[in-house]
Simulated assay, not measured.
Amino acid sequence: MIHRLRGQLIEKDNEGVVVECAGVGYRALTSLTTVQALPPTGEECVVHTRLIVREDAQLLFGFASRDERAVFDAITSVSRVGPKLALAVLSSMSPGQVAEAVARGDVLKFASVSGLGKKTAERLVLELKGKEAAFFEVVPELSSKNGSSAPVAPASPGGGPYLEAREALTGLGYSLEEAEAALSGAGEQDSVEAYIKAALRGVRRR
């Protein structure tokens, strides 16, 4: 079992990296988050790995942190969700954001990931809901330095009115990112209407 690689980063692209260890180059498929977190080619790096053995292939996946690998394992434990979809999620969301989305039952956040779809997003939330504490023991955000961590950003407001307001804003034509940006300045509100009014006031001021 290949669990960790430490060596010279000799190649990296949008799909993965090659790490040379004792003269052997190991190719690992990665998320875009990991690619961005690793140092420039030619430098030493540490990549945490997960080896998946199939009848027709042995696939090595790499992660810039143990937290990202833990979330990858959690996502691939969901029925009919493979490693490629797990990497797509981790390319769009940090480990902390995945844990937060599961805890909130945030189907829309998962469904915004390219290739995932609403039904798969619902299955992710359904099968991981209530298990996030076991799956995500530590979920600090990845920092720009390989192997190090930064504190998790403050969580956005929980489910209920916040999620309903965000869905309403996307229904008005805002993208998910635009809706979340507008709501980020709304502060804590006690109703859907209050969230929407505060968000739209912030948009008009920009």
Rank of each mutant, 00 (worst) to 15 (best):
V102A: 00
G130T: 01
K12E: 01
G185E: 05
K129T: 04
T170E: 13
E11F: 15
P95S: 07
S191M: 04
V35W: 07
L85V: 14
P140W: 01
A186C: 09
V98K: 08
F135E: 04
A37N: 04
S94V: 01
S149F: 12
A153D: 12
V19F: 01
P161E: 08
G62E: 02
S112C: 11
R80Q: 12
V24H: 06
V35K: 04
R206L: 07
F72T: 04
F61S: 03
V71W: 10
Q36H: 09
P151C: 05
E44K: 12
K109H: 13
P157Q: 00
L9S: 04
E100K: 07
I75C: 04
I52T: 10
R123H: 03
L176Q: 12
S65H: 08
A88N: 11
A86K: 01
A165F: 10
G187N: 06
A179L: 12
L29Y: 11
K131C: 02
G82E: 05
A37W: 00
V19I: 10
A199Y: 09
L108Q: 13
V203E: 09
G25K: 02
V203T: 02
I75R: 06
K129R: 15
P39T: 08
P157M: 03
G158F: 01
V47H: 02
R123V: 01
V53N: 02
S175F: 04
Q189C: 11
E178C: 05
M93L: 15
V89M: 14
I75V: 15
L142W: 03
K84G: 03
Q97R: 15
T41I: 14
F110S: 05
E122P: 06
G25C: 05
E68N: 05
F136V: 10
F63N: 00
V18P: 01
D13A: 04
E11M: 07
G96F: 01
R205F: 00
E43Q: 15
E44L: 13
A74R: 02
G82R: 02
R27F: 15
E167M: 11
V47Q: 01
V17H: 09
E11D: 13
T120E: 02
F136G: 10
L142F: 06
L142T: 05
P157T: 05
V98F: 12
A134P: 00
A37I: 00
A199W: 03
I2P: 09
G16V: 07
L59G: 00
V46E: 14
K129P: 01
E11S: 14
L29C: 07
K109N: 11
A155W: 05
V46H: 10
V19C: 04
G96C: 03
L5N: 02
V46K: 08
R206F: 00
G23L: 08
Q8S: 10
P83Q: 10
L59E: 15
